[in-house]
Amino acid sequence: MTRFAWLLTRTQTVVVAAALAGLAVAAAITGVQLAHLYTSLVAHCTTGCDLSTAEFTSRDSFFAHLLDVVAQVAPALLGLFWGAPLVAREYETGTYRLAWTQSVSRCRWLLTRLAFGGLVTVAVASVLTLTVTWWYRAFDHVDANQYGVFDRRSVVPIGYALFAFALGALAGAVVRRTVPAMALTLAVFILVRVGLSLWVRPHLFSPRHEFVPLTSAGQFGFESRNGAAAAITAKAGGPMNAWTLSDHMVTANGHVATFADRVAFVQQHCPILSVPPKVIGRGVAQAPPGLDAASRSCSALASRTFHIVVAYQPASRYWAFQSIETVIYAVLALLAAGACYWWVVRRGD
């Protein structure tokens, strides 16, 4: 049965393997150039490093975009084009009546095809994510935003691909027609991916909190929207390479400062800032006299009254997140494969 599974998937496997090999070779060539560039522009930089780092990261390469898009869509494509037709095409073309009346039980037929397809999917996804992660390593190091590219690096894409494949097989078994099964696979895959990223991943570990004084916040000032009374505002992020989940301005006794609190503070302590500046001419605001001084003293007072609490996941948890999410998707893939088995073998018609 394994040989027959290979016979049925030989062409598509060879085509994908060839495309992948081409991509890997291109990545190897450009990746070496990139490494030289990184060494000369960033690693051995002595003066004007910001500028040379910026020069390195702003390199607009076609290949970088290509690789990014491929890394993003490859798992879904594997589910659509390998998973969905696995059972659906047999039903659609009527060959299930040929396949399941040979001397191999339907159970063994399905398990062999799922296992074979799953292995090839994992192999393809592994080579792809290895290539992408390796190629991007210098950029990722400079960007220091590992959680921002979380779903296109390291091991999670393997989990995504395996899940998409099993989901496709299940959809095909249920719908029994290839194209609707592909549509269903895509819809469910996107829902699961978005749902898990938004609502599950942030809660896998309880976040750490950091108190940031307003004076070291990234943005700190007075903000007026649409001519309303001005509020004090500040934003801050977590440490280097961490995943910032939220930042709140809190009062000295630990309560979250609401928008009303922040407006009230300005009105009470620095009323001159509360009134939004009048706009004259072409959007140029005329500052009332004494504004700068008021702003300075108000800021000083504010930074004694408020500070920012940042909730974040530290950089050190990256691999824990990667492993857990991969395991989650592997388990989902097993569940989908089990449901597919039930639908095809147990339910029976």
């Binding site: 049925l8 073309t93 009527g94 060959t95 009546r97 040929l98 009346t101 040979q102 001397s103 191999v104 039980s105």
Partner: peptide, 18 residues
């Protein structure tokens, strides 16, 4: 099981083939 399957040959309607 494989025994029962091996004992029966089946030619489905419209003779499906890959």
């Amino acid at each position: 099981g494989p025994e029962a399957l091996a004992a029966v040959g089946f030619l489905a309607q419209d003779s499906p083939a890959y």
